[in-house]
């Protein structure tokens, strides 16, 4: 059944959120590179050009690839989360094994109206499975759906 239906992609804002995170991470390196340029120890651009190149890849290319590598499928009382470009992880959590559910929003996620849904299980491996990059209201709706399913199971 699994491969017949395509994965649901994450919210497009997720790419923007990842890019913003990458930009913030790149700031100290850029400043350091600029400072190194000002010292004029080496010809112009030896520090700045590589830093700018790596930053450009991390900011422009990587978030898009990561976005396309990620996805989820909510069907048949289970949540399937796929993630990872190089190291691919394809996890399925049945609702019947969910202990509790978190909906978290970091500052950047809040800015873009996103949220991370985390399912906690009793297992030592995959004790918590996170799905980032959902629209906040989608995350809440998914939480309620999973909650309702747990309730049904026990009755």
């Amino acid at each position: 059944m699994e491969e017949t239906e395509p994965l649901t992609p994450l919210h497009p804002n997720h790419v923007k959120a990842m890019r913003l995170t990458a930009i913030i991470a790149a700031v100290p390196f850029t400043i350091a590179a600029l400072a190194a340029e000002i010292t004029r120890l080496l010809p112009w651009g030896v520090f700045l050009v590589p830093v700018a190149l790596v930053a450009a890849i991390i900011i422009i290319r990587i978030p898009l690839r990561r976005y396309h590598a990620r996805g989820y499928r909510l069907a048949e009382e289970r949540l399937q989360v796929v993630r990872g470009m190089l190291f691919r992880r394809d996890t399925v959590v049945p609702f019947g094994r969910v202990q509790h559910i978190d909906v978290d929003q970091g500052p950047i996620e809040r800015f873009y109206g996103l949220a991370t849904l985390t399912l906690h299980t009793a297992g030592s491996h995959n004790a918590s499975v996170s799905l980032p990059g959902l629209a906040h209201e989608d995350a809440l709706a998914m939480r309620d759906e999973i909650r309702a399913a747990i309730r049904r199971d026990t009755q």
Partner: peptide
């Protein structure tokens, strides 16, 4: 079991095998 995960590294992705990681309390 609590969850089931199929994990593949870069080589495994190309060679068509995987690790099956089971969530066990």
């Amino acid at each position: 079991l609590q969850s089931v995960e199929i994990a593949q590294g870069p080589i495994a992705l190309r060679r068509g095998y995987a690790s099956l990681l089971l969530g066990l309390a």
